[in-house]
């Protein structure tokens, strides 16, 4: 399902001395079935944007279209939108509350008013997706490890069967292995089930490994968007907003100070770089 955001503006505490413009004219297109990363430093408006898309914050101005649903300053039909969108906040394990893992995951589908059998099926399915052993279903979520709790929380959102899944720094605070597991899970959901995934991140390397589209926010505006190539070729713009290029790309730049002819600079992953270097070496050996 597609998301289109036009001229979105969100102002907090309007008309008070504490007024703050969190978003100031954001434009964004998220194609259905894509894996889009929203990048930006802390305070760039990332959280506000995803909450507006999820129908939790009403826009001050501008319009958001999700499939055929519209959200703007005047319309209040957000409940429909919420069924389509799963939103995973930062450190989602801090929102667990039920006595058992299964009950917590069932919270969303139960709220949707689904029959019990359907709810049970979804809980089972969601646990499977996130790789939680079915034996854990009757355990208290608070006895699990941090990484497992995070997965329970994500399963709780997946159980709504959202068409669009939005996650705010889903790997924050996990160790490298835990991060890898969560992000691979998202990639699978995206590829195998066609779920549109929006990943909010300040980690360029992580984003570039998993996402296929990118949107850079800075100071409440969308300053760059498109494919990795379109976004990361603008190092000038990125650096002016305190964002770095992916580590591999920076390494290619380092290489290009020496290599003649230089390597293309739209290389973002280790695999790509390895392939390019191998090609280069074989070409040299042939003549």
């Amino acid at each position: 399902m597609e998301i289109v955001v036009r001229d979105l503006e969100v102002v907090y505490q309007s008309g008070t001395p504490w007024m703050k413009k969190a978003l100031d004219g954001v434009n964004l297109t998220v194609p259905g079935g894509s894996f889009t990363a929203i990048l930006g430093v802390t305070g760039s408006g990332k959280s506000t944007l995803i909450q507006a898309i999820a129908g939790l914050i009403r826009p001050t101005r501008g319009i958001i279209r999700i499939g055929s649903h519209l959200i703007d300053a005047n319309r209040k039909q957000t409940a429909d939108v919420r069924r389509l969108i799963g939103l995973v906040f930062q450190y989602p394990e801090h929102q667990l509350f039920a006595e058992t893992v299964a009950k917590d995951i069932a919270f969303g589908p139960t709220n949707l008013g689904l029959p019990q059998s359907e709810v049970d099926g979804r809980v089972k399915q969601a646990m499977e997706w996130v790789g939680l052993d079915s034996e854990l279903a009757d355990r208290s979520p608070f006895q699990l490890s941090g990484g497992q709790m995070r997965r329970v929380a994500i399963a709780g959102v997946l159980a709504i069967s959202p068409k669009i899944l939005i996650l705010d720094e889903p790997a924050a605070g996990l160790d490298p292995k835990g991060q890898e597991e969560i992000l691979s899970l998202l990639k699978r959901l995206n590829q195998d089930f066609g779920v549109t995934v929006i990943l909010v991140s300040h980690d360029m390397d992580q984003a570039v490994r998993y996402a296929d589209r990118f949107c850079v926010l800075a100071e409440g505006r969308s300053v760059l968007s498109g494919t990795a190539k379109a976004v990361f070729s603008r190092a000038d713009i990125l650096s002016s907003y305190h964002l770095e290029l992916p580590e591999i790309t920076r390494f290619v730049q380092l290489l290009n100070r020496k290599l003649d002819p230089p390597l293309p600079e739209d290389v973002f992953t280790l695999d790509e770089l390895e392939r390019l270097l191998e090609e280069r070496r074989k070409k040299r050996e042939l003549p």
């Binding site: 999820a54 939790l56 919420r82 069924r83 939103l87 801090h94 929102q95 919270f107 949707l112 959102v157």
Partner: peptide, 16 residues
């Protein structure tokens, strides 16, 4: 802030 955040998270899961 935390209350707000949890409230929103549960709202996103269909809480009323």
């Amino acid at each position: 802030e935390e209350t707000e955040k949890i409230r929103k998270a549960q709202t996103a899961r269909g809480a009323d």
